[in-house]
Amino acid sequence: MAALSIGIATTSSALLTRPTPRSSRPTRISCIGWDPEGVLGPPQTGHLARIEFKRRLERDADAREAFERQVIEEKERRRALRESRAAPDTAEELIEYFLNTEAREIEFEISRLRQRLDKEFFSHLQYELGQLRFAVSKTQDIEDRLIELEALQKALQEGTEAYDKMQTDLIKAKQSLTKVLTSKDVKATLLEMVERNELNRSFLTLLDENIANAHKGNQKQAADFMEKLRGAVLKYMTV
């Protein structure tokens, strides 16, 4: 009996004894850069500098005014530079003219001198490139000149193609805008234009220009109508 009593006591004591609870600690993330599923997307560079620059402008009114003044001065400098440059007469001079043009001014000069950038001009440019490529003795100056002309040829070809496409789109946009403004059923006309894919960025840009001109001319009724039209266009426009 004694042995049985001891056995029961021992068993009961073992059953009633609870394991010592472990202290629970919150899970810590030690590396936030680990993103195997790509949820966070690719890392972005330069955004911190842009945010800091924006905050500095917001805090410092003087810096903001200086920045705006600098923008105005730069626009004035570019305008004065454009007016001071005279278009050359020959293809040879026109090549040098473009070689001495700032990169960001190329687009403007292409639009200004588009008629001069014809088949004859590009033939002359190609002829000079051929002479440089097949020169008997190539010096460093020839190599540098060849690189410059190849880059210029590519820029002018792509630039003229883009300009011509823009002009074509602009003509179509003018026709489309006239159609809408003279329509008795604007909604039906817009739906027809959607089917023909005539509502695009060129159309919207032209409409914005007309709205701005209406405001400048104090044509409030016309501006209000075109702004309502713009809202309707955005519902249907395909970018």
Rank of each mutant, 00 (worst) to 15 (best):
V180G: 00
L191Q: 06
E209P: 05
K138F: 01
L48M: 03
A222H: 10
D62H: 05
L190I: 03
K184F: 09
A3E: 11
R25I: 04
N218Q: 11
L181E: 01
L81K: 09
T20P: 08
V233Y: 03
N213W: 09
K119D: 15
K235Y: 08
S13H: 08
T17E: 13
V239R: 11
E58K: 14
A155T: 09
E209G: 02
Q131G: 12
L181N: 01
S5Q: 09
L113I: 07
G159Y: 02
I147F: 11
G231Y: 10
K119V: 15
K216Y: 15
E120C: 10
A222R: 12
E195C: 14
I147Q: 00
T189R: 10
R50S: 07
E161P: 01
D208A: 12
V239L: 11
D62K: 00
L146P: 01
Q157V: 10
M226T: 11
D224Q: 11
N100M: 13
E148G: 04
M226Y: 13
S13V: 12
Q70W: 13
I95R: 02
K138E: 03
A214C: 08
Q157I: 08
P88H: 00
A162F: 11
T20Y: 14
K119T: 15
S5P: 05
A212K: 05
M193R: 02
Q175S: 13
S183N: 01
E76N: 08
S24Q: 09
Q175L: 07
A86E: 01
N218M: 09
K179W: 01
R28D: 04
A214D: 08
Q131W: 09
I110A: 08
D62F: 12
L57K: 01
L117I: 02
Q167P: 13
D62Y: 10
Q140A: 11
E195M: 15
R85T: 00
K187Q: 14
L57T: 06
A155I: 06
V194G: 12
F122V: 02
T168R: 15
L81A: 12
S12C: 10
I8G: 06
K154M: 02
A14P: 02
E161H: 14
F203E: 00
V239E: 13
E109N: 05
Q126F: 12
R64M: 07
F53M: 10
P43N: 00
K172R: 14
R79K: 12
Q131N: 10
E150A: 06
K179I: 03
S12E: 06
E96G: 05
E120H: 12
D185C: 04
E143Y: 08
K228I: 04
T90W: 07
G130F: 01
K54E: 08
L117D: 03
I142R: 02
Q167R: 13
E37C: 10
